[in-house]
Computed example of a mutant assay.
Amino acid sequence: MSKIFFKGDLKEGIKIVLDPSLNWDDIRSLIIAEIEEKSSFLKGSSIYVDFQGKEIKEEDWQEFRKEIYDKYGIMLSKELFKLKISNSNTAKIVLGPIRSGKLLNVKDSLLIIGDVNSGSEIICNRNVFVLGKVRGSIWAGYENNDKATIFALELEPEKIQIAGYILDLSKLKKKNNEFGYWVYVEDGEIKISKYSGGKRDG
């Protein structure tokens, strides 16, 4: 049985599952080897690392995360970002990054595993979930669907819109949350709140 393997599905995105009997040096080496082998596929993505209950020193983990992000452009996380997409709500999965100049137009909900780069544009009739950083533009609920939601791990967008509502980007400066953002319409106003275990926490 392999000591490390990749999995992926609609609700959890890409994740690495580790054998908890491994020591930290082996974990580092195996993750790096897998990332290097799959670097063209994984670049710009976010990956959940499942340690199967194994305790890791926070200092070692943060140092490793920075090393992987700086070298490969990949964000590792020990937090599982469950998106709670209902079975009746089909979604298109796109492996990012979405590069500058790209226009992506989708009728169903959209899950992007990776970054949305500056100069790119996403137009979606329903919900948009980004397991990465948004630097480009996203328009969810395109056909006047103000029930649509946008989720992203990081937001530095050029424009965010849901139905006919445009987010005031100055509101982002008031939020300092490394675990992600929800953007949604409530009481006739577009709002932004931090990620809290899959729920909106305003």
Rank of each mutant, 00 (worst) to 15 (best):
S120V: 11
F151I: 12
I85L: 15
G8L: 00
K43W: 07
G44T: 13
V49D: 04
V106W: 03
L110G: 11
V49P: 03
E12A: 02
V116N: 02
Y72V: 05
I162F: 01
Y142N: 06
V106M: 01
S46W: 08
S2R: 10
G198I: 01
R126F: 13
G164S: 15
R99D: 14
T149F: 08
R28K: 14
N177L: 04
S118M: 06
V106S: 05
E156S: 09
L131R: 15
L95Y: 15
E158R: 01
S29F: 05
G53A: 05
E12S: 04
N87D: 14
D108V: 10
K159F: 08
G141P: 08
S170Q: 10
T149L: 05
A148C: 06
N145I: 02
W24E: 01
Y181N: 09
C124V: 13
K175A: 05
F6K: 09
K171W: 06
K173D: 11
W182R: 00
K92Y: 14
L155H: 09
I4D: 04
G44L: 07
G180A: 05
V130E: 08
M75E: 15
V17H: 04
K147I: 08
V17S: 05
V128S: 05
Q161L: 01
D70C: 12
K15W: 15
F64A: 10
G198H: 01
K15T: 12
L167C: 13
I35E: 00
S2V: 06
E178M: 10
S40K: 14
V134F: 03
S137H: 02
F51V: 03
G180Y: 09
Q161M: 10
I122K: 00
K11S: 11
K43R: 11
K133E: 15
I56V: 15
K38W: 09
L22N: 04
I56W: 08
